[in-house]
Structures are given as structure tokens and as C-alpha cells.
């Protein structure tokens, strides 16, 4: 069977298991914390406060973005998705290596490991969306029908994160260097993607190149849905580009995954 199909099939057969394993993953992570799952809300709040302080008040002096929208709601919408993607990629990329001892003792569909790790970050993301909602209300920003495409962009973000995580989970099981590389790359990507700054504030000649970053499509997609009232089919070129990019990574990742997964335990 073709590897890309095989990986999808393993997911469809184990949907229930992915959900339950994700729940236990969260439970295990916060079992030693007094505040428990509340940290899923507190952690991002602290980070948002810091970014807003540094970039919103410090560097921008509270000016609105592109003269259209206040910085805080705009920032939080972007950060919400960024937190989800960055955590998914970094921890998803490490997920198989971290569990290799466990899986070497049983016949387990390894390809679902990055997935259930990514699913655990959905809880935090839902909290983040609630925060975004509160901020929008307090800034008198109206909710529009475009809100309904948030699930589309979230699904797109999931597919993208999973593909990258699957690719790196193979690499970093073979050589740990890749995990370190991934962490550095993600740290840089926060500043190189239009999360803290707007793409329109960049020089005209740079903008097409910045749009080649698939994160641009996702982050801007969230903001289009919440503030700018743009549908994703109004951006056909970017949409086609994003999915071509993501599917290519997925194909390479699933082929390598299936090729190497039988020997993951050997590389320990």
C-alpha cells in the first residue's frame, strides 16, 4: 500500500484512541501541578502580555495595525494560532523518540503518535480563542459570518503541523541534531513570520517572498476570518500554494516514516 494512504488509514482506524490518548497526555503533564489544566490558560496569557508589552506598547507605541485595527486583538489572533503550530511542530517532532521504549514492546500504529500529541494542544487553543473573543468584545469589534472559516484554517494548520512533525519525528529518531535544529528554526520563525508585525509594513519587493511562508497563509487566514472579512477562496493562488506545499511535505514525511519506522528502536 502507498505510504501516504497507509498513514491516513491508520488515523481513521484509531480516531477514538487518538482522542483518549490525548486526554491522558494532558492529564499526565499537569498531574503534579496544583492549578492543573488552568495552566493551559495562564501560560499563553503571560506570553501574550509580554509580547503586547514589548511590541505593542514599547515598539509601536499603541498605534493600530495598518491604520485599521488595534494591535492587541490583531496580535492575539495571530499568536493563538502560532502557539498551536509551534508547539505541535516541536513536540510532535519529538513525540516518537520520546516514546520509543514504550512502542518497542508492542504492535502500535506509530504514525498516530504525533497526532495525539498535537490534539492535546487543541485545548489550549480553545482557551486562546475564548480570550480572542473577550478582547474583541472589549474593543467593540463585531463578529461576522467569516468566523465560520476558523475551523478550516485550524484544520489546515493541523495538516501542516502534522506533516512537518511527522517528517521531523523520523529525522530526530535517527539523529537528535534535527530536534535541536527544529527548535532553533521555530524560534526564528516567530520573528520571520507576520505574527508580531504586519506584512503590509514590509517593503513592497519583499512581500511576495514573505507569502511563500505557509505560516503567512494560516496566520493571515485567522485574521481574515476575525477582522478583515475575507473568504479563503478569494485568495485562490495562496490557497493552492499552501496545500501543494503541505501535501508535498506530507508525502515525503509519510514515505520516510513508513520506510524507517520498523527500525526506530534500533537507532536509540
Amino acid at each position: 500500500m502507498l505510504s501516504p494512504i497507509k498513514v491516513i488509514k491508520e488515523h481513521l482506524e484509531n480516531l477514538y484512541m487518538i482522542g483518549r490518548l490525548a486526554r491522558y497526555e494532558t492529564k499526565a503533564q499537569y498531574s503534579t501541578h496544583i492549578l492543573g489544566v488552568l495552566w493551559e490558560l495562564l501560560n499563553p496569557l503571560f506570553q501574550i502580555a509580554t509580547y503586547w508589552f514589548v511590541f505593542g506598547l514599547g515598539l509601536r507605541g499603541g498605534r493600530p495595525v495598518d491604520g485599521q485595527i488595534d494591535y492587541l486583538p490583531w496580535l492575539v489572533a495571530g499568536l493563538a494560532l502560532w502557539f498551536f503550530i509551534s508547539k505541535s511542530i516541536v513536540q510532535g517532532g519529538n513525540s516518537i523518540y520520546a516514546r520509543i521504549n514504550l512502542i518497542s514492546q508492542m504492535n502500535f500504529p506509530i504514525s498516530i503518535i504525533p497526532s495525539f500529541v498535537i490534539v492535546t494542544f487543541l485545548t489550549e487553543h480553545m482557551f486562546m480563542l475564548v480570550i480572542v473573543g473577550f478582547i474583541m468584545v472589549s474593543y467593540d469589534i463585531p463578529f461576522t459570518i467569516h468566523l465560520i472559516q476558523l475551523p478550516y484554517y485550524l484544520f489546515a494548520a493541523f495538516c501542516f503541523s502534522y506533516s512537518v512533525a511527522l517528517l521531523f519525528s523520523t529525522f530526530s529518531s535517527i539523529a537528535r541534531d534535527f530536534q535541536t535544529l527544529l527548535q532553533s528554526a521555530i524560534r526564528m520563525l516567530l520573528y520571520l513570520s507576520p505574527i508580531l508585525w504586519s506584512i503590509n509594513s514590509m517593503p513592497e519587493y519583499l512581500q511576495p517572498f514573505l507569502k511563500l511562508n505557509p505560516l503567512t497563509y494560516l496566520i493571515n487566514g485567522y485574521r481574515d476570518s476575525l477582522f478583515f472579512e475575507t473568504w479563503f477562496w478569494e485568495l485562490p493562488q495562496l490557497t493552492i500554494y499552501f496545500w501543494t506545499f503541505t501535501l508535498s511535505i506530507y508525502f515525503i514525511a509519510s514515505i520516510l516514516h513508513v520506510k524507517f519506522r520498523d527500525s526506530f528502536a534500533d537507532y536509540l
Partner: peptide
């Protein structure tokens, strides 16, 4: 090394292991 998750309770481990099987 029974493949138990040491952060979780024994009861949770029963379900976790069962699920994985």
C-alpha cells in the same frame, strides 16, 4: 519496565495500557 506512565495514577494506567492494546 512495564511501560507504565509514572505521572499517571494506577487506575489511569489501566485504561491507557488497555487503549494502546
Amino acid at each position: 519496565s512495564a511501560g507504565l506512565n509514572t505521572q499517571l495514577s494506577g487506575r489511569d494506567n489501566i485504561e491507557l495500557k488497555g487503549l494502546m492494546m
